[in-house]
Computed example of a mutant assay.
Amino acid sequence: MSKPIKNIIFDLGGVFLNIDFQLTNKAFIDLGVNGFNEMFTQHFSNPLFELLETGKINEEEFYKAFRQESKTTLTNAQIKTAWNALLLDFPAERIDWLQQISKKYRIFLFSNTNQIHYDCFIEKFKKQYPGVDFDRLFIKAYYSQNLGLRKPYPASFQAILDEQELEARETLFIDDTIKNVEAAQALGLQTIHLAHPLTVLDLSL
């Protein structure tokens, strides 16, 4: 029998932030980068992207390595623009829902992301919601590049549980990527796979 939920750890992309990987794929194809979708998808990332997402390389190092991997001479700005193309908007009804749910549970965010994407989506959020600090909507927002760990590695979930002194059985994890959900489940967390077209608005919490 499941224990009552006290805590919720949310994913970001596909949960609160609309994303479309194909837009980044198309942007790179338009720049002459063929096979980008073999390098990076929602379910797989080339070691280069993993290094970026765990903060092992910085923005400049990423651009340089990307040029080498893709055998192109793209500028930093061209790579950044295409790389950020997948980041869309934060639907207002989901942010309203989040603010309501935070009154019932201790809520956290855990996103596989990188500093380039973070700077971009935080700027988008500020434009949509002037005066609102996105990260402060949560008790703590965990980003892989700061944590130094990413999903689906068990150590990433364990680090959050340990730091916040959360009991796995009392904690719900919500993500749109099945392998992340399965990893959390294996650690004893309660889980919801928020598969498209479901949104948080469809949840009964």
Rank of each mutant, 00 (worst) to 15 (best):
Glu69Leu: 10
Phe108His: 06
Asp96Cys: 05
Ile160Ala: 07
Tyr105Ser: 00
Lys104Ser: 11
Asp176His: 12
Glu93Val: 05
Gln145Ser: 14
Thr75Leu: 10
Lys179Ser: 13
Val132Arg: 04
Val181His: 12
Phe121Met: 04
Asn84Ala: 08
Ile178Trp: 04
Gly148Leu: 10
Glu93Asn: 06
Asp135Cys: 12
Glu163Arg: 03
Arg106His: 09
Leu161Cys: 14
Ala168Lys: 10
Asp96His: 11
Arg106Met: 10
Glu182Pro: 06
Ser102His: 03
Ile174Phe: 03
Leu137Cys: 06
Pro154Lys: 14
Val132Ser: 04
Asn180Ala: 03
Asn114Tyr: 07
Tyr143Asn: 15
Leu87Asp: 01
Ile116Met: 07
Trp97Ile: 14
Ser111Glu: 11
Glu123Arg: 09
Ile160Gln: 13
Gln100Glu: 05
Trp83Val: 05
Glu170Asn: 09
Gln158Ala: 13
Leu74Arg: 03
Pro130Phe: 02
Phe90Gln: 09
Cys120Tyr: 11
Leu109Gln: 00
Pro130Asn: 12
Ala92Cys: 00
Leu172Ser: 05
Phe110Lys: 13
Gln128Glu: 03
Glu123Cys: 12
Thr171Phe: 01
Ala155Asp: 07
Phe125Ile: 06
Glu170Thr: 06
Phe157Trp: 15
Glu69Arg: 09
Asp135Phe: 13
Glu163Thr: 06
Val181Asp: 15
Leu98Thr: 00
Leu172Glu: 04
Tyr142Ile: 11
Asn112Arg: 06
Gln128Cys: 00
Ile122Val: 15
Leu172His: 05
Lys140Gly: 01
